[in-house]
Write a protein that binds this DNA or RNA. Structure first.
Lengths: 231, 231
DNA sequence: ACAAAAGTGTTACTATTACACCCATGT
DNA sequence: ACATGGGTGTAATAGTAACACTTTTGT
């Protein structure tokens, strides 16, 4: 099949669930579909895979074309391919997901989309096809991840306060955490480093700023590989 | 594309990584490929997806056709689709995985396979295409699972000893565990129940037999959903 | 009596939880 | 002075890790 001048696989697509964190809310990057079917509905950004394109590269290209968001590290989440998920023909969709800081990207709609925007998780409307399900799956994966691994390097600014980090965790898991105990836990992991800097111009005691220690962070995240029995 | 009289998608396949546990060794269900290309090499069981078949159903059907193993619960693991992974044309493979007790199944090769067998993990040879990678991915997922959730209901006989359960954990994570502490941990989870029965005809003190409490087991495994922050 | 594997007691240490409290800033 | 969040102390409880020891069977 030819699409926008390129030869693409005609029965497989990629869709991306991009999470952002802004003003203490978890957000999702969505596009407004500008072609039939389901024109006008919001959708996860994605599209067709080129015949000579690896899956990860296709995901990167498609995300950039549809939204302008580029150079981020996405991970495969799952594959959706039931017979009835798509109205006209059998299409199998591979979903990818990533975490980013919305502030860092200039959004720009692609050829098939009229709008691109970050929507707060609680305000996500009905999406095209089975995209709500795909989003749910990514969210579940993210929530599972945050239980066992540190998070935030991709979602927070370079320098952040402990309250921001806590708010991020709370936004993801959807419930409040105890300040004292949250801090103890985070410090124990040694993934963040206190800076000699403080918040400015806030009408309360300024919070100290922290940064992730990237070496430690990546090592801890990667110990998906060093197994102890936790259960 | 028509395959064995059925219309199938011509660029997507499913392959299954089935883990078994026997004589304290982790085993993999493999088939010997009997068609070109790569005839004679061992492979993960799988095949083409029917045009009117959901992914999960296709996985079940394909596993049964290729090996005789049926009625087991498989889970999707990942999707492999790089351009060069398959020699002749672009094929995308969705991998599924499950845990079973080898004893329970009569193996029977399918139309394209000359042999079916359980091979110990350490003895898995070079497989067709990128099947070694697919197996690695499933193994990694299994190892990750066993860190956080109880395991064994599908892999052990109805009644088992604590040493068997420990050996299973050791086989999966690949290192020895302390008996005392393993037991304390397992009991704390409340997923197993002591029976009023003991091993027979062993030349040492007979071990007590246990069973999984299925209700509790499934509840604990399913609390993928009840998030506390563990990190 | 001995080998082999099953099974238990105990202790030092670390982590978790739940509170209560103090601190620094802008208005 | 006070509201607002930032930040700390502490004590009871629970979980972890390591090691030594006892028990029950067949030979």
């Amino acid at each position: 099949m030819i699409y926008n001048g390129e030869e693409v696989l005609d029965n497989i697509t990629i869709d991306c669930t991009i999470f952002g964190f802004e003003r203490n809310r978890l957000k999702i990057l969505l596009v407004k579909r500008d072609i039939e079917p389901q024109k006008g509905l919001w959708a996860l950004p994605g599209g067709w895979i080129g015949v000579n394109e690896d899956l990860d590269s296709a995901a990167r290209r498609l995300l950039e074309e549809a939204t302008g968001v580029r150079d981020i590290f996405m991970k495969q989440v799952a594959c959706f391919g039931n017979v009835s998920r798509f109205p006209e023909k059998r299409i199998i969709t591979i979903s990818y997901s990533a975490l980013v800081q919305p502030k860092g990207f200039a959004l720009r709609p692609g050829p098939d989309t009229s709008e691109v925007s970050w929507l707060a998780l609680e305000e996500v409307p009905q999406l095209t096809f089975d995209h709500n399900e795909i989003l749910e799956a990514s969210l579940k994966t993210l929530r599972n991840h945050v239980r066992h691994y540190p998070i935030g390097l991709e979602l927070l600014p370079e320098k952040f306060t402990l309250s921001q980090l806590q708010a991020l965790h709370e936004a993801i898991i959807g419930k409040p955490l105890n300040k004292r105990n949250f801090r103890t836990k985070i410090f124990k992991l040694k993934v963040i480093r206190a800076l000699n800097e403080w918040q400015k111009e806030v009408s309360h005691r300024p919070a100290q700023l922290y940064s992730f220690d990237k070496d430690v962070y990546y090592k801890v995240v990667a110990d998906e590989y060093e197994y102890e029995l936790v259960i």
